[in-house]
Design a protein around this nucleic acid. Structure first.
Lengths: 183, 183
DNA sequence: ACCGTCATGTAATCGGTTACATGATTCT
DNA sequence: AGAATCATGTAACCGATTACATGACGGT
């Protein structure tokens, strides 16, 4: 039972298992996919290896299914529950990262050889964000209809804020680009 | 001259050197720090190792200073310039990641044992984002005063959009939390 | 001469990513 | 029975992060 340091991935795994009870990696994967994974992706391989790490460190118990798929089901231990509680109560780092390839490319827009490159970038980004925004809205309406008012939905509403901002931003980029082009 | 695959870090290094001319890692570090590094951090160690990788792949030339600090100055090669141009012209992946520890914790807010944990989270996040917003505004005013209208400033304006959104979001979280608490 | 900071790296580790691969289940 | 998809992993590589460490330079 070695000691490991807890990464965001660890907290996601611990948190989901604490919330939903004993889970398989596949269930974790599904839970992540349509919630936090929307803007903070955790590749499925991580959700298979991470519980193993946490089990080795005593934060989870692993139980192997006998027949069939030989699934591994993980449940949280007292030690795991405590680690989770400590994380939640601890001060949260205020940093954050927005890793957006579109934004990165825009940053180097002055190096583009054809102005059309920028146009294409803005158009594609705008469309993608608009689509995503619509998806989020739909999902939010759905949750509202179901009477859901939990923290997951609150988190989703951040997604809405973000996408609205992104749409406005890329529209603005388009606008300025056109003005500059026609001048 | 092995072949490597180009990561975002690679593009940042290539782009900055293409834009500013021959540079040392320290200069890259400085350039990143007050621009794109604000929301997409590239640790300084990367900016020392990555140019070496790129040089080995033929995208950069490395020149070692004789005396003094024995600095390594990297300049872009034709091959590097071409790789960069291809990247800029290529379609951009539309995905993005927002890795925000505060948001992650909020997502697990239902697991908090004391409601004060959430209050503290919201208060701290709000303050941090408000501060950052003010910094961005100041920087933007400064650039405007200098007559700067480049892509770096456009990118900064995305930061403004983001921080404004974040501030509104965390205010909203606070508000809902208070209403729920007093009910 | 000394001290603090600026500057420049290296080494080691480890998590994350990609790719591969196979086993169950379900549907036709 | 076969195909397609769902489900469950493993392995290898490698970039990213952390920690460590030293060297130059500027000021007192």
């Amino acid at each position: 039972m070695s000691t490991v340091n807890l990464t965001p991935t660890s907290h996601v795994v611990l948190g989901l298992i604490a919330r939903k009870g004993p889970s398989t990696s596949y269930e974790l994967k599904a839970a992540v996919a349509n919630s936090i994974g929307n803007f903070w992706p955790f590749p499925h391989a991580q959700l298979y290896t991470e519980p193993a790490r946490l089990a080795a460190a005593g934060y989870l118990n692993e139980e192997r299914e006998e027949g069939g798929r030989h699934r591994r089901t993980y449940s949280i231990t007292d030690s795991g529950r405590q680690a989770l509680a400590e994380w939640i109560a601890a001060p949260t780092p205020t940093g954050y990262e927005v890793r957006d390839p579109g934004l990165l490319k825009l940053f180097f827009g002055d190096l583009a050889q054809a102005p059309s490159d920028l146009e294409a970038l803005a158009a594609a980004q705008l469309e993608a964000h608009a689509t995503r925004l619509e998806e989020y809205r739909e999902l939010d309406r759905l949750l509202e209809g179901m009477g859901v008012h939990d923290h997951a939905r609150t988190t989703l509403s951040f997604g809405l804020v973000y996408e609205e901002g992104a749409v406005r931003f890329w529209q603005q980029v388009q606008r300025e680009h056109r003005e500059r082009g026609s001048r």
